[in-house]
Amino acid sequence: MVDSNQLQDNRRDFKLARLTRAALNPSPFEQFKGWMDDALAAGLTDPTAMTLATVGEGGRPWQRMVLLKGFDQHGFIFYTNLGSRKAAEIAVNPQVSLQFPWLALDRQVIVGGRAEKLSITEVVKYFLKRPMQSRLAAWASRQSSRINSRQALESQYLQLKEKFADGEVPVPDFWGGFRVVPEEFEFWQGGEHRLHDRFNYRPDGSGGWQIDRLAP
């Protein structure tokens, strides 16, 4: 068993950088792009990985990691099985939260907004770009459903590999994607003595964004 004192004493100081109001881009999309560029340039493991939080039946939140597959002024895109738990919860409550944990840079970004289904055209365009193995895996896995064993999953994959041996793997009708349209951003930069820098962006009602510094 892990010693609770060991957990309590596990800490470090954050000294990599500071984040000032003057350094922030007026657009949270441009600010995010700059930080994503930094994460990519730093060679972080899985810089596009983001925690997606949804709220399910009874108001219970649930989180999982998904991969960001595109972003622009309209929102943040990810793909998934439309029968998955995340998709089912989004269908009931489209309000979600994304979090990018760039811990090696002492940074995190949180995005809150509304998830909207992508068009069939967008889904097909991306699906056909995926590696053959990924397309087959999309068919093989009824995401979030109960399975008897790992062997059953792998057997299904091999059957599909034989079925689509010609390389033409169509888009499953149960597979799609979502765009999270942002309604709020938070940029966090770790600071010395736990005096972190936090800035929140919210729409200002006139097409721009109100930026507020938050206490850490």
Score class of each variant (00 low, 15 high):
31 Q>S: 08
17 A>V: 07
13 D>V: 13
8 Q>F: 14
35 W>H: 02
16 L>D: 13
5 N>Y: 06
9 D>Q: 13
1 M>E: 11
31 Q>E: 12
5 N>Q: 13
28 P>M: 09
25 N>W: 01
32 F>S: 01
3 D>M: 06
34 G>M: 08
18 R>G: 11
10 N>Y: 15
18 R>V: 10
6 Q>G: 07
23 A>F: 04
30 E>W: 02
18 R>S: 11
33 K>Q: 02
35 W>L: 02
3 D>W: 05
7 L>P: 10
22 A>F: 07
20 T>A: 13
22 A>W: 05
30 E>T: 06
12 R>D: 14
33 K>G: 01
33 K>S: 10
9 D>V: 05
16 L>Y: 02
28 P>R: 04
34 G>C: 06
27 S>Q: 10
13 D>K: 06
32 F>Y: 09
27 S>L: 09
19 L>F: 04
12 R>P: 00
1 M>K: 10
22 A>P: 03
17 A>N: 09
21 R>Q: 14
37 D>W: 00
30 E>I: 02
23 A>W: 01
17 A>H: 10
31 Q>R: 08
11 R>V: 11
22 A>N: 09
37 D>M: 05
32 F>C: 00
29 F>W: 03
8 Q>E: 12
11 R>N: 12
6 Q>N: 07
36 M>P: 00
26 P>W: 05
29 F>H: 10
16 L>N: 08
28 P>A: 00
32 F>N: 02
25 N>I: 03
8 Q>K: 10
36 M>D: 04
19 L>V: 09
12 R>E: 10
7 L>C: 12
32 F>L: 01
31 Q>W: 07
15 K>C: 12
20 T>D: 07
19 L>A: 00
8 Q>P: 09
15 K>M: 09
33 K>I: 01
36 M>A: 02
5 N>S: 11
32 F>M: 00
14 F>V: 07
10 N>A: 15
32 F>E: 00
37 D>A: 06
18 R>Y: 06
24 L>S: 09
28 P>N: 08
2 V>K: 14
25 N>F: 01
29 F>P: 00
30 E>M: 03
28 P>H: 04
8 Q>A: 14
